[in-house]
Write a protein that binds this DNA or RNA. Structure first.
Length: 318
DNA sequence: TGATATGATTTAAT
DNA sequence: ATTAAATCATATCA
């Protein structure tokens, strides 16, 4: 297997084309000859840039067709294989960056990198309804937030796609280049792989910057809107009366069913979770200090009694 | 301005 | 998933 190259090598392949190049002149003309050679080489180097692409291509082709080319190439391959062994294994590990994972998780949690949800108000409302169990759903306050979030999301995706595309383009370009070069110099698949890895790492570091700044934007948005979301506004008097009416008329079991909550929510023009919140707060606060609520309890009891009585009268009498 | 009221959120239990 | 309980953060009042 390795007989051939060595054989070729030992026969002095390098001298075949240029017998006089490395020879010492016996007399004083040595200096002259050297100067001449160097001048030639310099000249060649200087004219390289002047060569047309066709010319370069032709030269390359000529080189490829040279009868010694396969043999030379084999030698190169052999040498390469030996040296590559020492290079390889330097760094193949790629532990997932915790920082990147954190960013990814956050973007996913914020719905920036998750499945598409659209930006329309209807879609936003649907999303709010879907997430209603756990999260708050005052969608009127949220629509602005959601709009801004989807804006961020869109920018993020376009940028990400752009990077992805650029990365792919660059990779294929480099691959083509390497493929082209592999005709004149030995390139192992491992090397190509390594190169691709390097490119991907570079691009992913750019992506990381994008993710970083997106996270920042989301955080700012959150701090602005989530706090606003927390800004409390008292229910209007009518709503409170309706809720209190229900509470005190069901004082023995102040746990409205899902349907009852929905109805109350509708009547008070608040959400079901707000109704749940209200009853949760009311129950615990009532229980904690019944005395304090006695007056209120009496008032509502009286009122319901009156309405009941009047209803009864209205129904029975006259 | 401090005390209190009140809606929202968090935590833990079921 | 619903609730109690504690807690947070603001609104309102005196």
């Amino acid at each position: 297997m390795d007989e051939q190259p060595r054989l070729m090598h030992s026969h002095g392949v390098g001298m075949a084309g240029h017998p006089g190049l490395g020879q010492h002149m016996p007399d004083g003309t040595e200096g002259e000859g050297r100067k001449q050679d160097i001048g030639d080489i310099l000249q060649q180097i200087m004219t390289i840039t002047d060569q047309s692409l066709d010319e370069a291509q032709a030269r390359k082709h000529a080189l490829n067709c040279h009868r010694m080319k396969p043999a030379l190439f084999n030698v190169l391959c052999e040498i390469k294989e030996k040296t590559v062994l020492s290079i390889r294994g330097a760094q193949e590990e790629e532990p997932p960056d915790p920082q990147l994972m954190r960013l990814d998780n956050m973007l996913l949690a914020e719905g920036v990198s998750g499945p598409e949800k659209g930006g329309g108000s209807a879609a936003a409302a649907a999303a709010a309804a879907a997430a209603g169990g756990a999260g708050a759903d005052n969608s009127a306050e949220h629509s602005d937030y959601r709009a801004k979030l989807s804006q961020i999301r869109q920018i993020y995706h376009t940028e990400l796609e752009k990077y992805e595309q650029a990365c792919n383009e660059f990779t294929t370009h480099v691959m083509n280049l390497l493929r082209e070069q592999s005709r004149t110099r030995p390139i192992s698949p491992k090397e190509i792989e390594r190169m691709v890895g390097i490119i991907h790492r570079k691009f992913s570091s750019i992506q990381m910057q994008l993710k970083q700044s997106t996270c920042e934007a989301v955080m700012i948005l959150r701090s602005r809107f989530l706090d606003a979301r927390r800004k409390r506004r008292n229910f209007n008097k009518q709503a409170t009366e309706i809720l209190n009416e229900y509470f005190y008329s069901h004082l023995s079991n102040p746990y409205p069913s899902e349907e009852a909550k929905e109805e109350l929510a509708k009547k008070c023009s608040i959400t079901v979770s707000q109704v749940s919140n209200w009853f949760g707060n009311k129950r615990i606060r009532y229980k904690k200090n019944i005395g304090k609520f006695q007056e209120e309890a009496n008032m509502y009891a009286a009122r319901t009694a009156v309405t009941a009585a009047s209803a009864s009268v209205c129904h029975n009498g006259s």
